[in-house]
Structure formats: structure tokens, C-alpha cells
């Protein structure tokens, strides 16, 4: 499960990789990282999973260790809590860097199944959980108004225009 590599082979490094990461909004200051480790110290996941270290992730991204990074399951463990981002003295935005790396991993076909599932659910009903007559009856019993209907066809169309269906290789239900 370890994300790191014990031996770094220069021929395996992709010097252009950091540029690809930095093109993604939020991740543009990746190379400001001076490896202080404040991010790892602030990380509630790193405290519990020793292999998960935002500092290491930043270093690997800068070095261009593209494959071990983008193939790793550990990328999906980040809780997105932004504790590292608040405390980074270099404004590297480690949380945004990890989100950027995830989006590059998705383009390589490594997407956590839960993210794919969430997208399919949103495409289906416009929400993570479908609201049926049953839920609205429960709400009525409590004196709550029914949940307003989602314009889900518009969400599906936006997903199509952006190309989320092709990216995740999913079918978007309904619509055109």
C-alpha cells in the first residue's frame, strides 16, 4: 500500500508532470513546497495511516513520479479537510494539489468507485439520494413541505457538455 518508492530511477521521472499538475486551478504553487512537513503534521489521516503523507505526495509530484502517484489508492484517502492548506507556510495548497492529482488519476483510468457511483446517482435523480413520495410523506408527517423537484435534465446536459460521461465511462440516464 505504500505510496513511496525506495529507489528513484531518473529515467522513470517525468519532468513535465509538475507542470500538468500546476495547470489545474489551486495547484499552481506546487513547486513552492520546501518540504517542511507542516502539512503531514496537521493531517488527521496521516496521524492514523503512516503511509499517507501530504509532504511525500508533494515531493513525488515535483520529482515527476507520475505512475506511482496516479496508480496509488492512497490518493483517495485525503478527507479534504484543508487542515494542511490552512497551515502550509508556502501556500502550496496541498488539499488542492491532491484534488488535482486525483483528477489526473481519473484521466488515467484510476477513479475511486465511490466517486463514480456518486456521479451516477447525481445524474439519475439530481441528488445523492433520490427523494420519492415516501420521503415526502415522512416530511409531511413532520410538518415539512415536499422537496422541490430537481431540474435533473439540466444537470445531465451539463455533465455531457463537460464530458463527464466519457471521462468516467458512464451512461447518463434520460435526456437526449
Amino acid at each position: 500500500m505504500a505510496i513511496g518508492v525506495s529507489v528513484i530511477r531518473f529515467e522513470e521521472l517525468d519532468p513535465e508532470f509538475k507542470r500538468k499538475v500546476m495547470e489545474i486551478p489551486g495547484a499552481d504553487k506546487l513547486t513552492y513546497c520546501f518540504q517542511c512537513g507542516t502539512c503531514t503534521a496537521a493531517c488527521p489521516i496521516g496521524r492514523r495511516v503512516s503511509d499517507f503523507r501530504p509532504r511525500l505526495i508533494a515531493r513525488m509530484a515535483i520529482l515527476g513520479l507520475k505512475k506511482p502517484l496516479l496508480d496509488s489508492d492512497l490518493l483517495w484517502l485525503c478527507a479534504g479537510c484543508y487542515a494542511c492548506q490552512e497551515r502550509c507556510p508556502q501556500q502550496v495548497h496541498p488539499t488542492d494539489v491532491i484534488a488535482a492529482l486525483r483528477s489526473l488519476a481519473v484521466r488515467e483510468g484510476n477513479v475511486h468507485p465511490s466517486l463514480k457511483m456518486k456521479t451516477e446517482l447525481i445524474a439519475k435523480s439530481g441528488r445523492l439520494y433520490e427523494i420519492t413520495e415516501f420521503e415526502n410523506m415522512m416530511r409531511e408527517d413532520m410538518g415539512l413541505p415536499p422537496v422541490a423537484e430537481v431540474k435533473v435534465d439540466e444537470i445531465r446536459e451539463i455533465m455531457r457538455v463537460v464530458g463527464l460521461d466519457k471521462l468516467l465511462k458512464i451512461e447518463l440516464e434520460g435526456g437526449q
Binding site: 483528477s103 466517486l115 430537481v150
Partner: peptide
């Protein structure tokens, strides 16, 4: 009226 999911904080991990 009409609103749905916000996109979830995860959406940017797929596509900004």
C-alpha cells in the same frame, strides 16, 4: 426551486 446536489466537495477531484 429546481436545485439539486451542490456537486459535493469531491466533484473537483473529477474535474474542476
Amino acid at each position: 426551486e429546481g436545485a439539486g446536489c451542490c456537486g459535493t466537495p469531491d466533484m473537483e477531484s473529477l474535474d474542476h
